[in-house]
Amino acid sequence: MMEERQNSSPLHHLHPSTKVLCLLLFLVWAMVFNHPLYHLAITALVVIINLIGGSFRRALSFWKFYLVIACAAVLLWSLFLDEPGPAYNILGRHIATSAILYGIGMGLRLISLILFAVVFSSTTPVEAFTYGLRRLGLPYRVGFSLSLAFRLVPSVYQTAKMVESAQQARGHNPRKGGPLRRIFGFVPLMIPTILYTLRSANNLSLALECKGFGLKRKRTSLARYRIGWGDILTLALFIVGLSASIWLRLKGYGAVIDRL
């Protein structure tokens, strides 16, 4: 019953818990090095994962964003890190080469984290995500609330757009004027949106209770995921990769500066 998804890649078939664990492992992995070359390797790995997961196109569509991130990281860290060693003098400021390299490394780190998040969210439906979290110990109600939050975002957004049209039809445009005007302009947009959402929330709570939500019984599930060889292999790859990286870093490789 659950197989009829339109998109399907090897990553779609992984057990949700595997994917959540891999995400957590990757969060650590991305922190191990700060040398740009090592980060380049990690970024390349995530690009490959995106290719396998079929989300490369989506990931690529954010390219402008990556560029901004990279520039901002280089700029910020060059200014904030006062490192010894070779340096440039730019506009009277002492800027260390190592700080620039560190900045590039950090830019790549952010990009690889985003790329991983893209492939994760593209290959893991919300229910699978919260199912994975539940299997790792998150209580059912908490998981339910989290997945409900995901479902409500588009409807809140739609409501907000509807409200915006209704206000626009009365000659009000929250996107015009100076910053302060805009902030106050969003009050007429937000209030009906929130009230509308609250009213539906009340109806939804009622519907949930009438559908037996919160009955003190053991809940069953139609969703069935099985752990396969793919899961074991994927997890093994991540664990080996991460351990090797930590070992390398402890041996003194992969760092421009001695910090995370």
């Binding site: 019953m1 659950m2 439906p125 919300v126 229910e127 997945s147 995901f150 479902r151 559908k211 037996g212 939500f213 919160g214 009955l215 019984r217 053991k218 809940r219 069953t220 599930s221 139609l222 969703a223």
Partner: peptide
Amino acid sequence: SEVATEVAFLPENLG
């Protein structure tokens, strides 16, 4: 997020 999951919710709560 899926038709089948929606319909399954009530009987799932009944265990």
